[in-house]
Nucleic acid binder design. Structure first.
Lengths: 165, 165
DNA sequence: TCCAAGTCGTTTGGATCCGAACAGTAACGC
DNA sequence: GCGTTACTGTTCGGATCCAAACGACTTGGA
């Protein structure tokens, strides 16, 4: 056995290390798994689907959000994608320079800027997303419907719990 | 209703947008929830527990890994934490400059470098981790034991599935 | 009307991260 | 021996990210 440790081995070693402390192991291992899973999935999708199209993970999420919701104010996009306003400014600049999105200043409130997919952006999403989704489907393919459902709703609970503060 | 969209609203809008395409919605929403949950949890723990101690998320994970496993070769640490070798070099340099870890070159194979927690590092972990874990426990507190268990094992399955490739 | 407070997107500075290129070291076949 | 191959940790360039500061703009009460 090499020094590479599986999640299960890490769990066991953790118990031995901090046995004397009153800790919530279930919580710790759940969130460690959460972080590792998100990283692994993100990396896999980025390398196998997004990189060939020269798209960033964040960039793709922005495009996808705009695709679903048509047009949005930048503050809402940032909140929806889960990045800061400042980060979105840079990402939007990159996407706009590739003419995948359009910047539409609001006339009612001149502080606001709306973003919108360009025709080329729509075309790109209609090409990429089926492929992206096929990979997503393969990733969760080892879970049965009940597991997937429970996991999804549990994750949503975590989002709500940890975002309010 | 403002333009802030919940995960449930996003799910509904997605269905309407791509109704005509043969897509795996369950997979898509599961992974969207996964990514959002990981981000929310990481942000919450970083801001509320780690930042007061001037620790990075990645830095904490490295310290935690060394705490659990005593001493490790850098390649295994990077793989365990889920970062590249190059990133670990920088993080280790930062932690070493704060004298939280020690670099121990291997005598048997002079390419290898082992990292090890310093006494100060051990002290820091014993101070921080109970606090960290208490927050973790609170985050998953809205889930019952069955949900938490199913979620954790499902996440482990995702790690295994998406890391092999 | 006017100004103080709030909100918007942007900019800035610094930290983090990855992937590729790199030099040093080990292992193995011939 | 000795060169080829593989593998280590490091370095480098570029992209991403956040938090804080900022200017532009709107709002609402005095």
């Amino acid at each position: 056995m090499p020094d590479r440790h599986t999640l299960a081995e890490t769990e066991q070693a953790t118990r031995e290390r901090v046995q004397h402390l009153p800790l919530d192991f279930a919580a710790s291992h759940a969130l460690l798994s959460l972080y590792r899973a998100a990283n692994a999935v993100r990396g896999h999708l980025t390398n196998n689907v997004l990189r060939p199209h020269d798209l960033t993970w964040t960039g793709f999420l922005v495009l996808w959000t705009l695709w679903i919701w048509d047009s949005m104010e930048t503050r809402d996009i940032a909140e929806s994608v889960g990045i800061s306003k400042g980060t979105l400014t840079g990402v939007a600049k990159t996407l706009a320079s590739r003419e995948l999105i359009e910047r539409i200043p609001s006339t009612a409130d001149r502080r606001l800027v709306n973003l919108k997919l360009s025709p080329a952006g729509v075309e790109l999403m209609e090409e990429i997303y089926p492929e992206f989704n096929k990979t997503e489907s393969r990733i969760v393919g080892d879970l049965d419907a009940r597991e997937l459902d429970t996991m999804t709703s549990a994750l949503r609970t975590l989002v709500e719990t940890s975002e309010q503060s």
